[in-house]
């Protein structure tokens, strides 16, 4: 049975249909990358899966259990953790507090403070620092660590490389490598197509709220993904509106 199953999900921002009739499944242990242009609905979809955004229609199941009506904290208890876009750390709390605050969900698993510090060596010696005073890369490491502290079955990573220098992203992905190989099921949004295809076994592409491509990473070519990304050829479904009517961009929450 698939771990995550999404059935005709519809999520709106006011009148804007950010996610439209999206259906797909993610199997236990799978690493799935999601790509798509700004405003394609990736972040909204991730937030809907995590429970931060109520869907207008459709179902979200975790391990067969319908969690659509559950609130976010309850889904964390069920095993879904989101690393939100823009990191969203608790700026006035220390690094240690940011990590520990996520361990109040009593889920058993390999992740605790020591394990997170081992996975992210760049956090060495920063435990007592205010999270707001960290660099972008360090903050992202804390954000990932914070999600891991809940010992999730399904880890959602939303644009972990956003706004970071490539060398920092390399470091983060090295750390992520251990996590990705550890059997945790991961759904990640990544702007960098190369990286997305590099870490995942499967790639989903979203365009204007719809999943327009869903292929195994080995079977798909870079060109196919790029075409789907820009809506140049309809890989599946089709019927999307004229690309010229621009979908308003999602707001970027980038800390100063």
């Amino acid at each position: 049975m698939s771990l995550l199953s999404i059935e005709s999900l519809e999520v709106r921002h006011g009148l804007l249909r950010a996610v439209r009739e999206v259906s797909f499944t993610v199997d236990e242990g799978e690493v799935v990358a999601m790509v798509g242009a700004n405003g394609a609905g990736k972040s909204t979809l991730m937030r809907a899966v995590a429970g931060a955004h109520r869907p207008a229609d459709g179902r979200i199941r975790l391990d067969g259990v319908d969690v659509t009506a559950r609130r976010a904290h309850d889904r964390v208890a069920a095993g879904i953790a989101l690393v939100p876009e823009g990191r969203r750390l608790f700026a006035d709390l220390t690094v240690e507090e940011n990590l520990l605050v996520a361990s109040r969900v009593k889920r058993s698993g390999p992740w605790d403070l020591a394990a997170v510090l081992a996975a992210f060596p760049l956090l060495d010696g920063l435990l007592k620092r205010r999270a707001g005073n960290l660099s972008g890369g360090e903050q992202q490491a804390v954000a990932i660590g914070r999600a891991l502290m809940t010992n999730p079955r399904l880890l959602l990573l939303d644009e972990v490389s956003l706004g970071l220098a490539p060398i920092v992203v390399d470091t983060l992905y090295q750390s992520l490598g251990t996590i990705l190989s550890g059997g945790t099921t991961v759904l990640l949004v990544e702007q960098d197509l190369g990286r997305a295809l590099g870490v995942s076994r499967r790639v989903l592409c979203m365009l204007e709220g719809r999943v327009v491509l869903d292929e195994s990473a080995d079977a798909v070519t870079r060109e196919q993904v790029v075409d789907a990304y820009f809506g140049l050829s309809r890989a599946k479904g089709g019927g999307a509106a004229n690309p010229a009517t621009a979908v308003p961009e999602e707001s970027e929450r980038e800390p100063a």
């Binding site: 995590a50 429970g51 931060a52 609130r71 976010a72 904290h73 309850d74 964390v76 208890a77 953790a81 989101l82 939100p84 969203r88 608790f90 700026a91 006035d92 709390l93 507090e97 940011n98 520990l100 605050v101 996520a102 109040r104 969900v105 914070r146 999600a147 502290m149 809940t150």
Partner: peptide, 24 residues
């Protein structure tokens, strides 16, 4: 305390607190 951390996290950003398992 842990409860205190949860309260401060919720005060700072209730939506994100929910995402780390706190019932805001």
């Amino acid at each position: 305390t842990g409860i205190g951390r949860a309260i401060r996290a919720t005060a700072a950003d209730a939506d994100t607190a929910e995402l780390v398992g706190i019932d805001s």
